[in-house]
């Protein structure tokens, strides 16, 4: 089974993140950039499917030059190669344009299965797999916490607030995964060394046959009017337990009319 894994590079969600003052896009220059967390689970799942039924795993990333680092990190986990869509015109693309470009890139590859993360930690659209399945007219098995492959039949447990749905489709299909699906492996030293030699095919918009006027900030279907940091919460009261803090806590709640 030939599998493509979608990997996005994002600013580390454990750090302070911001937008650029000039064009109001994500501040990437000063940010510490990492693989979107869910995408590590997508890579792991792809590798597991390959280990079970054979085939290839290709990483697909749309992102700037810096995304090369994340691609190498992804490859060090075990995928066979990568496609990096990189073009200055892509800066500031919205979800619609991103899905257009990723769909074009997927059309140029041979695959039975695409695995994406269910959600990125920066944009959080949680919709890329659905948008791609809409564009490509293939099944979208989204929000999986479990994936079973049996020949060309794919079955997932789709994670819900209060349980799950069992959903089935035939390949070709696009699956998106949550962090409940597996435990991603750490790259081995051998994997890190091997990743340096794996092929990374860089594609421009012209290579994909996408016109630069259809993507980027200029073509965005929505725009940021203004932004500001969230006002901090007003400082509260802080006490040190001297044996009666439980009672004092409840007295506070009572004063606030919560209990």
């Amino acid at each position: 089974m030939n599998i493509v894994v979608l990997v996005k590079q994002v600013p580390d969600s454990g750090t302070e993140r911001s937008l650029r003052a000039d064009d109001k896009t994500v501040e990437r220059d000063s940010a510490s950039l990492v693989i979107n967390e869910m995408d590590e689970y997508a890579i792991e799942e792809a590798l597991k499917v390959k280990e079970a039924v054979g085939g290839t795993v290709t990483v697909l990333t749309m992102g700037p030059d810096k995304a090369t680092e994340s691609i190498r990190k992804a490859l060090s986990m075990g995928p066979d190669g990568a496609v990096h869509v990189n073009d200055p015109a892509l800066h500031g693309s919205d979800a619609l344009a991103t899905s257009k470009v990723l769909a074009k890139a997927l059309q140029g590859l041979e695959w039975d299965l695409v695995i994406a993360g269910a959600e990125s930690t920066d944009g959080r659209a949680a919709a890329m797999a659905s948008m791609l399945s809409e564009r490509l007219g293939v099944a979208g098995l989204t929000g999986a916490r479990k994936l079973t492959v049996d020949g060309s039949t794919l079955t997932i447990e789709r994670q819900l607030e209060d349980g799950y749905q069992v959903v089935e489709a035939q390949t070709p299909a696009i699956v998106s995964v949550w962090d409940t699906i597996n435990e991603p492996r750490y790259p081995s030293f051998k994997g890190i060394m091997a990743a340096k030699k794996k092929p990374v095919d860089t594609k421009s918009l012209a290579d994909l046959g996408v016109d630069a006027s259809e993507v980027g900030l200029g073509a965005a279907t929505s725009s940021v009017v203004e932004f500001a940091p969230r006002p901090p919460r007003a400082a509260g009261e802080k006490i040190t337990d001297e044996g009666d803090a439980g009672s004092k806590l409840v007295a506070y709640l009572a004063a606030e009319k919560i209990v």
Partner: peptide, 20 residues
């Protein structure tokens, strides 16, 4: 989760801007 996916597909169909 479902609403966001419905909206994503709809944005593609209508070629419309989407704010989530």
């Amino acid at each position: 989760a479902e609403g966001k996916e419905i909206a994503g597909r709809l944005a593609v169909k209508l070629e419309s801007g989407l704010l989530y």
